[in-house]
Amino acid sequence: MASIPLITTSRSASKLRALDPSRQAFLLLRTVFTVAPILFGLDKFTNLLVDWPRYLAPLVNDVVPGTGQQAMYAVGAVEILAGVIVAVRPRYGAPLVAAWLAGIIVNLLLIGDYYDIALRDFGLFIAALALFRLATAHDAPDRHTSR
């Protein structure tokens, strides 16, 4: 029996790519690490979800200038920026989010009352690292090439 050559069109290749489990995982993590930091960042300005300054360790509060709420404004701006960078370039945004989560974990451990939240954020930290690894395969390559 003769084998039939497999001819792939760009349309069928696109469908195969969309069905790739690692591509789906990449898109899920990219979406979550775009939306969540932006929403949580915006909430730092409104405190609708929680009174965010209570999550600032006294040691950190003593080091940063201004009030705890003013520090949360800066935190919110960084979180929004991180979410936008993940949306545009997850290869660079994912390690930024991972580093940010590491800082949050250290801050929560310094408080001493939020070990459960620190553990949850450790899981998010690992997920951000997974997004970084997936982004190396699925994020568009840099367009800057040396000649």
Rank of each mutant, 00 (worst) to 15 (best):
K44W: 01
Y114I: 08
V50E: 12
R17Q: 13
A99M: 10
T136L: 12
F132S: 09
A127I: 07
K44N: 01
A36P: 13
K44L: 03
D20T: 09
A128C: 09
L129I: 13
H138T: 14
I4V: 15
A71R: 00
R17G: 09
L129G: 09
A98I: 10
S14A: 13
V63M: 06
R120S: 07
I80W: 07
W52C: 04
I117L: 11
F45D: 05
V35W: 03
V78L: 06
L28E: 13
A118E: 04
L48M: 15
F122L: 11
D43N: 05
W100L: 04
S14R: 15
F45H: 10
F33N: 02
L42H: 07
L110P: 00
Q70H: 03
F125I: 11
M72T: 00
R11M: 15
N107P: 00
P58M: 02
L42T: 02
A82V: 10
R91P: 01
F132E: 12
L16F: 10
A135G: 07
L101Q: 10
R54E: 15
L101M: 07
V97M: 06
V64I: 13
R120P: 08
V78R: 03
S12A: 05
R54I: 14
S3D: 10
A140P: 04
A57S: 03
A77N: 00
A2R: 13
L16K: 15
G112Y: 06
K15D: 12
F33K: 01
Y115T: 12
A98G: 01
V84S: 01
A13G: 11
N47F: 09
L27S: 13
I7N: 07
I80K: 01
L59F: 08
A36H: 04
V60I: 07
I38K: 05
V50A: 12
T145G: 14
G68N: 03
P141K: 14
L28M: 15
F26W: 10
L101P: 00
L49T: 08
G66M: 05
I111Q: 04
Q69M: 07
A77K: 03
Q70N: 02
A130M: 03
A99K: 09
W100A: 12
P5R: 06
L49K: 15
T34V: 04
